[in-house]
Simulated assay, not measured.
Amino acid sequence: MSDATGHAAYRDRSHFRCLDGLRFLCIAMVLWHHAQPVQSPDWQLLDRGFLGVDFFFVLSGFLITTLLLRERARTGTFSLRNFYIRRALRILPVYGFVVTALCVYYIGIKGETQYLQAVPFYYLFLSNFLTEHVPTLSITWSLSVEEQYYLLWPLLLMLLPSRVWVPLTLALVALNVGLAMMPPADPPLATGPLVFRLPNSTYAPIILGSLAAILLHRRGSYDPLRPLCAHRATPLAALALIALIAQLGPFDMRGLQNLAIHLLMTLTLMALVVRERGALQALLVRPPLVRIGQVSYGIYLYHLIALDLTARLGLRFGLPEIIGEGPALWLLLIAYSLLSWAMAEVSFRTLEAWFRRFRPKGRPPETVEAEKDPRQQTHTGGPTKKPIAR
């Protein structure tokens, strides 16, 4: 099989083989971040697992924009209705289940009514502006960022001429980074439990992912970028630079340091989809990594619940170190990661599988989203095969 790095081959490719493996790396960083089995002031890098969420943003921006651009190239436009239906069926079932279950447990059963005012904002996808969260729901901030972006970005692509897309994304990134670097307003812009601010460059990575999709979709920008993206060393070198900046840069990552990391993440992603052979690529297509990547959305939503359950079991069985430093933290990391994966698998095969039946019928625009049921057969370099009858 050739590397298939030409523009026509890239546009014809219906599935990017490395991206599920990249999802594995992202969720592994998040799982590490919440267990932290190694904590050392000399290794700042080990405290940067939250960057996995930023990498998820880059990936999401790239995939949804590629999906829309390919549909537009094939039909002359794209269906907002089908886009929103696909997004809703992908995100809402497990999200709604987790949010509802935890709100019922903590507020209805445990009586912690102080969280009542926050509840509506989880369903409105505004939790990224909440100042206090229902326990284990703090991670929903990232889903709010994505949903806000999904709501607005396709409208901009549809309403604005294509010649302004690249300048628009660059302007939005600059605006986001600039606002994040500004000192917080005093008093802050707030209403009820919400405070509207950008403590970090929250939207920049997802916008950069969309910019990557636009640049690779166009032959005029793909061809100049191809030598860099197709070089064997590019993805590993980009990841090494991310690690170096995370280790040696200031502890406060807002501003240009964060932007540099997001740009390198974007370059890594572009390299993986332009060239699908290489040392890193060979690792990312390993079946266990691919499978974990396919259910990483569920792992993300369930992992704090799994962490809480695992820690409680550890205490019950006489492992007090489970909440402090020591070898038990490695056990915690392994145990809660496996439990998160198990919970995500059950969810994927039951709750999420039931809702996947309602996806829009007919040939999908392109199966670059990697949302398909793994039991469906797909191949690279051409249209997706029909699902196996079952």
Rank of each mutant, 00 (worst) to 15 (best):
W43F: 15
I206Q: 00
Q114S: 14
H231N: 14
R349G: 02
L22H: 07
L80M: 11
R316D: 08
L319R: 14
L332K: 13
P387T: 07
R349S: 09
M253C: 07
M270T: 12
R163D: 04
L267S: 00
Y222D: 01
D223G: 00
P41K: 11
L152D: 00
S347C: 07
W141H: 09
P365H: 08
P154I: 06
R87T: 12
I109A: 11
P364W: 00
T202R: 14
L46I: 08
R254Q: 06
W341I: 15
L263K: 00
M253A: 09
Y300Q: 05
L331H: 00
H7G: 05
G52K: 03
T384A: 15
T367I: 12
P188W: 06
L102H: 03
L198C: 01
V273H: 04
W354S: 11
A230E: 09
W32T: 06
A212G: 08
G6E: 09
A240H: 02
A306Y: 01
R218S: 12
Q39A: 15
D373T: 09
A185F: 12
M182H: 07
E352F: 06
Y10V: 08
Y149I: 10
M265S: 04
V273N: 05
L280A: 05
G324K: 12
A171C: 11
R13I: 04
Q257R: 02
D3S: 13
T140D: 04
F251N: 09
Y123N: 07
P188Y: 06
L332M: 13
V134H: 07
L289M: 14
I109Q: 06
L338C: 13
I207S: 01
T234R: 08
T77S: 15
L225G: 03
L155H: 02
V368I: 12
Y297F: 15
L241V: 12
N82E: 15
L216H: 03
Q294D: 07
Q376P: 04
I91R: 02
P184A: 14
P320V: 01
L269C: 09
F16K: 04
H7F: 12
S347L: 03
P41V: 10
G108E: 08
T266V: 02
L46H: 07
Y122N: 00
G76W: 07
